[in-house]
Design a protein around this nucleic acid. Structure first.
Lengths: 325, 325
DNA sequence: AATTCAATTTGTAGCGCTACAATATTCTGC
DNA sequence: GCAGAATATTGTAGCGCTACAAATTGAATT
């Protein structure tokens, strides 16, 4: 900074202001400073700025995986929103709760302005740390009982919507594919909603099969086999993601089963494959882009001192009906 | 840090050493310090540490997109390697060269220990900045003419391998799908290799169709249509990614074409879908995990002062033969 | 008991920047 | 031409940490 200041014939403070508070500096001066900075390859040291001001223009987001495209639009929403507001987004990947806790520790070490997490299940140590440091936290993809702030949609309502659609379309032997073990509420909430909804319609809710979350397409054949051993005349299947649904479709192809005549297949997430595969997969579209935008918006508002009363944003969802049901 | 020091009855310097140089501190003392730090929710301020030491244990990686799973194993390789060496990885997403340049500026502002990029095409301003700051840079997925260091494999050799496989299998009317416009060398290198290789075999190289990189599965039908209008009797097709190949497979399904009898389909990247779809897609497996590992390894070595002579690592590839060819 | 040496701990200075208050400069209106 | 306001610029101190050198401690040796 010093050398830029000398080269531009101003004080270091003016260089600092040119970057951080452009309107405080006379336009002509600012342009000269920025040009010389560019020539000298000077980029303000964020670490020093952060230390001096106690503020940060970097927001961290932890996402569970990039294995599937589910988070593409979520990240895009975050990215575009922060860019519009002069912030920067950095990402950390975490496949497990331990990794999430480590990622949170890194982000806190970096003294980011806020942290966006996915889901509402976190390690106790991470919760404690977040609480103690008081950093703004948004949980995305969930919409109740926020730890701090939350943005999401009701997976219960969405489950109900998809079950009701299948019932209206005349399916009666509906199977449900869930994830086994410790997985996020955004998955575990669906099963009770399914059971309640099919029983309300006077149908049986015993067609349930749980698979390992780690599997992608491969889960499809496994799930189909599992459900068929419960009821060989299964006529519809609700999958936890479009990837699993596509796996089921592939397996139907191998078996020579017509979709949806022999079996209706519903997915979740409205991934790109849902619209491109034949038949297209009926799916829950979760407004991921808006979720990303709102997550950043909540953090930026909090960082600017606006403590909002309403700390949960419901971005809703909609059902995309396609040929698979 | 001060309050941890007081609570533990040691000097701030001992707290610092407990975190940064554990072996310098007596085990008993260290454990007490770390335990009190945990109780107090103290996480060392990376900004201050970075400022004081001029060193950073954070490495930044810029990846083009998480839309497809192509970079999953690459990121996993990076992640696991840095964790083993006491470093941290942060990710930035960039869909365009401008976004990449912005991401690089952010990472430089953060004074990261090194930067991993994908491909060898970058904005001039970004190149200049990287050169001037001297931060260690690895370009991944390319393996020649590194800007600083590089880790990748030869897309030319891989193209040759896949073309030769098709020729050996008896296909003669081979079509090639490429990307139009300004895309990375890791794509543009393939077309000349394709042309050279088919001509060497005495075949015609006029079956070429370029598509927009932005399209995913949807590119498949477009490409197939385009190539069929060049040669309706096309008997094999080489796609730029497995996603496009899957799109072609979907389209073949709609047309009632048998794969590989009517048309052989080759993909690239060995994404999960390649092994799960029926028929499985013959694909180029790029050893992405090893690429990620090596990228981090090069940066960490450089950060530790070991200037290696060999700045390019070839992680190779292999062809996975499946039923689609 | 004195000396040596290694292991452990501790002050001090300063990293590059920004908050804040103070100062310098330019612009109004009369 | 001048007071007063508005705009633009500048010192100073300090953010939280670590490099480095110096100091302390304890055990082993003479």
């Amino acid at each position: 900074m010093q050398s830029v200041a000398v080269a531009a014939g101003v004080s270091p403070m003016t260089v600092s202001n040119s970057f951080r508070y452009p309107q405080r500096v006379h336009e002509e001066t600012r342009e000269r400073v920025l040009q010389i900075a560019a020539e000298l390859g000077y980029v303000p040291n964020h670490a020093a700025g952060n230390l001096a001001s106690g503020q940060s223009r970097v927001i961290g987001a932890v996402i569970p995986s990039i294995k599937n495209s589910s988070f593409y639009n979520y990240v895009r929403g975050m990215q575009e929103h922060v860019a519009d507001n002069g912030y920067q987004l950095i990402l950390k990947l975490a496949d497990s709760l331990e990794q999430e806790a480590a990622a949170i520790r890194t982000l806190i070490g970096l003294r980011v302005a806020g942290i966006a997490l996915v889901g509402d299940e976190h390690e106790d140590s991470a919760r404690t740390l977040l609480k103690k440091t008081g950093v703004p936290v948004v949980e995305a993809w969930v919409h109740r009982n926020p730890f701090d702030m939350a943005v999401g949609y009701s997976t219960i309502d969405a489950t109900r919507a998809i079950v009701e659609l299948l019932i209206v379309q005349g399916y009666t032997r509906i199977g449900f594919v869930g994830y086994e073990g410790d997985v996020s509420h955004r998955f575990t909430e669906r099963l009770p909603a399914f059971i309640q909804c099919v029983e309300q319609a006077g149908l049986s809710s015993h067609r349930i099969f749980l698979i390992d979350q780690a599997h992608g397409f491969g889960a499809g054949p496994k799930a189909l086999e599992g459900l068929c051993s419960i009821d060989p005349e299964l006529d519809a299947i609700i999958c936890p993601t479009d990837i699993v649904a596509a796996g089921v479709l592939f397996e139907c192809g191998r078996r020579g089963w017509k979709v949806p005549e022999r079996l209706a297949v519903a997915g979740w997430g409205d991934y790109e494959i849902a619209s491109e595969i034949t038949p297209g997969i009926t799916s829950v579209h979760p407004h991921a882009y808006e979720m990303g935008q709102n997550a950043m918006s909540l953090i930026i508002e909090r960082a600017n001192g606006n403590t909002r009363q309403q700390v949960t944003v419901d971005t809703g969802f909609h059902i995309v009906e396609r040929a698979s049901t």
